[in-house]
């Protein structure tokens, strides 16, 4: 599946300054693994030492928080958008 990953400003230097990166993947987890393969450095920033998403990183697929879906196992449809967004906002 062709998936567009939206990169937050804090991580854009890792992607050559780009706001989006295209990957081929079937799940959120594999999309993020693909991102790491294409642009090394992402994983240590968004995952903790246990391989879980950091507490202050939110990932959305088609505008839904993956914690309401199947987490990293959430399937991604062809031409869908996956957004990595800092969690600290609002209130």
């Amino acid at each position: 599946m062709a998936v567009t990953i939206r990169i937050p400003t804090q991580l854009r230097p890792l992607a050559g300054g780009n706001a989006t990166v295209q990957v081929e993947a079937g799940t959120v987890g594999s999309a993020l693994a693909d991102l790491e393969a294409a642009h090394p450095g992402f994983s240590e920033r968004i995952f903790d030492d246990n391989g879980e998403l950091r507490r202050f990183v939110n990932v959305f697929v088609a505008d839904e928080d993956i914690r309401f879906l199947e987490g990293l196992d959430t399937p991604v449809a062809d031409k869908s958008t996956l957004s990595i967004i800092p969690a600290v906002a609002g209130g």
């Binding site: 804090q10 920033r45 950091r54 507490r55 202050f56 800092p86 600290v88 906002a89």
Partner: peptide, 8 residues
């Protein structure tokens, strides 16, 4: 507002 390293 967030840490560029860990998003805290």
């Amino acid at each position: 507002h967030v840490c560029e390293w860990c998003f805290g």
